[in-house]
């Protein structure tokens, strides 16, 4: 695989990951009582690519 293909493949993934991560982190900071410790969710959101923020949205937050 040449380098251009590689970059073109990676850029969208990075954008999605960053967007989700930022949304999730902003919500986590504002969330008064997440489902579990805040630091744990912080790590999950940052470390697990894409799936981390989704996990947080689905099970980490209570409904408001």
């Amino acid at each position: 695989m040449d380098q251009t293909t590689m970059i073109m493949a990676l850029v969208p993934i990075i954008i999605i990951q960053l967007a989700l991560m930022i949304f999730a982190l902003v919500d986590l900071v504002k969330n008064p009582s997440p489902n579990g410790p805040k630091w744990m969710w912080g790590i999950i959101i940052v470390v697990i690519n894409i799936l981390g923020p989704i996990l947080y949205f689905v099970i980490g937050r209570k409904n408001y």
């Binding site: 989700l20 894409i50 989704i54 937050r61 408001y64």
Partner: peptide, 10 residues
């Protein structure tokens, strides 16, 4: 507000 609008497309 329950973020479905983000995580389902994701």
């Amino acid at each position: 507000r329950n973020y479905k609008i983000y995580w389902i497309p994701a």
